[in-house]
Design a protein around this nucleic acid. Structure first.
Length: 675
DNA sequence: TCAGCGCTCAATATTCGGCA
DNA sequence: TGCCGAATATTGAGCGCTGA
């Protein structure tokens, strides 16, 4: 006979289900329901409340790995490197009360919670930070990862209930934090790795990052991820959010609060200085931590200060000093970019620095090589910028005047032996255009391979990477990159060494993608200098397809220079005419079709922003685009509305008055966008 | 089972043009 | 003049997938 739960209130039903699930995770057999009882209770709940958020957490939850547009952008923090730099930042603005917290080194995640009718909240989505606006869905991993400090559901204490209202008064809110793995766990996992004859994991951040993307949910549990929250989407002061999170049971980053009125030892500048000096020996800390975060607590002040395109203005990261290494340049390598710029890299014997083994480092451009007189034998000091990217710091000892420099590394003889005379790929003469060294040979294979790689990336084609592009170009089968679409499966299989089945799949994918390429992506794929995503989107929103664009471009449309800038607009237009007209003809000849443009909103308002706004311009740009209107940074006669934020200068307003453009405030914009 | 490729992520540097 | 935005670039780690 089926169990009868009709006498149970829905809330009690959910409580028992949660208790059973938690018992299952902790292997506490006493608190577990039988599988039959558990399934029957789930069935009962799904009949009574089919939309209950608990139901979205259970059963088969597929690992999607899909990209997710974040509800609120997750910004990175602006950095200062020393307490002195922090003091300058601190003294610049009015910051009465701040929260100082540890900056753990792991993976930032955005957890979305939703209320159910009883007042309990449930995790409904988890995603990584990604690029700050689009992250990866890791809900399944979080739900099944048994992550310490991360709550799948909880009932907010009554006194805190109103705190959790979202700014729009909705029934969802977000908790932001870092997923980390402790040094002790890294050590234990490495013992297992070594025991199995596998490679050791190098550092906790990379391991945490890799773990949250795992498809093996049991393996995620074994990695012992921990969660530390540092913020919420709720419109209250930061110290109250942290207090609430901590009291509710979340793991919370270590933090202190202090302000101008605090005792001398607790004044932020003194505190930061003290912590920074202690940071030199961090090896005994349980978690990797690369600095401190100093954030203004007041939500009102946070709103007033707003954001740049990358950072909140109300918080800063004080980074601990980077470890450095001194190495001797063993070799200078020159790589060719898709635009023909030749970039120098120094190669040295592998050195272990900041949790990774390094053996090369960019010098960015030939001017650096000349300015620092770097040759084989030069001793240089390196660090890992931001704890990640190898960065050249300084020359420790100059080798250029010694006899130790092998003659073959000196291309022309002193005093200008510092850069090659010919392209390392095609062997043609190079041109020095400081700060760059350029190869202008039209059929340079390295450039063609990189352009092919970029082209495929621009149109979002997956499956052919750097190596395959090299192989295809070197085979001689691609006089133009569009020739890729003339190869059949048999040719691809022969050239790339693939099975015929795999080659056929790639050819099918290539055929499919050319059927409908968004115009903005095609423009990006043309690889015109200074024509990036932003400019491509503007051009695509003005001209619906390449035919219209090329036909209008000849008429000297002033839009280009007014919208993209007098120099950039002129150069892009010239380059499109010179290089892209014939390329588009070739693309058409192999079957490329531009996708139909998405219809613009019924009003199609052109909106320009100025001054400081509550959220960053980039985010407003996305919201305006998404709503069918057109965002622009430049005030032209076409602009219908100028949105004026705080501290705006008078230039655009004066221009708006001259053009008869309507001047509105941010509230108008937020209403238009439904915020 | 293993090797190699493709992909993604981390956090920043550099350069240039636009704008207040 | 200084800040900001856009474009492009940087290295190493680790997982998924494919093919041998």
């Amino acid at each position: 006979m089926a169990p009868d739960f009709s006498s149970l209130l829905s809330a009690d039903l959910v409580e028992q289900l949660i208790e059973a699930r938690e018992g299952y995770y902790s292997h506490d057999s006493i608190s577990r329901l039988s599988d039959t009882q558990y399934d029957a209770m789930v069935e009962e709940l799904s009949v009574r409340e089919p939309q209950h958020p608990f139901l979205s957490q259970i059963g088969h939850h597929p690992i999607s790995g899909k990209k997710v547009q974040l509800d609120h952008p997750l910004y990175s923090l602006d950095k200062v490197k020393t307490p002195q730099e922090f003091e300058v930042w601190w003294n610049r603005q009015d910051k009465p009360f701040v929260v100082i917290s540890s900056k753990y080194d792991g993976v930032a995640v955005d957890l979305k919670y939703r209320y159910c009718t009883t007042g309990r909240v449930f995790l409904v989505q988890a995603c990584t930070r990604g690029d700050g606006t689009v992250g990866e869905d890791v809900t399944a991993q979080v739900l099944h990862g048994n992550i310490k400090g991360l709550l799948l559901s909880f009932t907010p204490p009554l006194m805190h209930g109103p705190l959790l209202d979202s700014p729009q008064g909705g029934d969802e809110f977000h908790v932001y934090g870092e997923l980390v793995i402790s040094r002790q766990t890294l050590h234990e996992l490495n013992l297992v790795q070594v025991g199995r004859g596998h490679k050791r994991f190098s550092n906790t951040r990379n391991l945490a990052n890799a773990t949250i993307g795992l498809q093996d949910l049991e393996e995620i549990k074994r990695r012992k991820l921990q969660f530390f929250a540092y913020n919420m989407s709720t419109p209250i002061d930061l110290h109250r959010k942290l207090y609430f999170l901590s009291g509710t049971g979340f793991g919370v980053v270590d933090y202190v609060t202090c302000g101008r009125a605090a005792p001398t030892s607790n004044i932020p500048t003194a505190y930061v200085s003290l912590q920074w000096s202690w940071s030199k020996d961090r090896s005994s800390e349980p978690f990797d931590c690369d600095g401190m975060v100093v954030a203004i607590s007041s939500f009102g002040i946070q709103q007033r200060l707003g954001y740049t395109s990358h950072h909140p203005r109300w918080a800063v990261a004080v980074k601990y000093p980077d470890d450095t290494a001194v190495v001797t340049v063993k070799k200078l390598e020159w790589t060719v970019s898709k635009t023909g710029t030749i970039t120098p890299q120094i190669v040295y014997d592998p050195v272990f620095l900041g949790g990774a083994e390094l053996e090369r480092c960019t010098l960015h451009n030939v001017a650096h090589v000349i300015d620092y007189r770097i040759v084989v034998g030069t001793v240089v000091e390196l660090c890992r910028s931001g704890g990640v990217i190898p960065k050249f710091l300084r020359v420790v000892s100059d080798a250029i005047s010694t006899e130790a420099v092998p003659h073959e590394d000196i291309a022309f003889g002193l005093p200008t032996p510092l850069y090659p005379s010919h392209c390392p790929s095609c062997g043609q003469p190079l041109k020095l255009e400081l700060p760059d060294l350029k190869c202008y040979h039209p059929t340079c294979q390295a450039q063609l391979a990189m352009r092919l790689e970029h082209f495929l990336d621009a149109i979002d084609f997956k499956g052919i990477g750097e190596k395959t592009c090299d192989i295809l170009v070197q085979s001689g089968a691609l006089p133009f990159l569009e020739s890729l679409w003339t190869l059949d499966a048999s040719a691809m299989s022969t050239i790339c060494g693939w099975s015929i089945g795999h080659a056929a799949t790639i050819v099918e994918d290539l055929e499919r993608i050319k059927q409908s390429v968004p115009f903005a992506k095609l423009l990006l794929a043309f690889q015109i200098p200074r024509l990036g995503r932003s400019a491509a989107k503007k051009i695509a929103s003005r001209y619906d397809n390449p035919e219209v664009m090329f036909s209008k471009i000849h008429s000297g449309d002033a839009w280009w220079t007014s919208e993209l800038g007098p120099n950039v607009g002129f150069e892009i237009r010239q380059d499109l005419l010179q290089y892209s007209t014939s390329q588009w003809q070739r693309l058409k000849s192999v079957g490329f079709i531009v996708a139909r443009p998405t219809p613009k909103g019924k009003d199609g308002l052109i909106i320009c922003l100025t001054g400081t706004l509550m959220i960053g311009r980039e985010d407003y740009r996305k919201l305006i685009d998404a709503s069918g209107h057109i965002f622009t940074n430049s005030l032209t006669r076409d602009v219908k509305y100028l949105v004026v934020g705080a501290d705006a200068g008078s230039g655009k307003s004066a221009k708006a008055a001259k053009y008869g453009t309507a001047i509105v405030d941010e509230t108008w914009l937020r209403n238009l966008l439904g915020l």
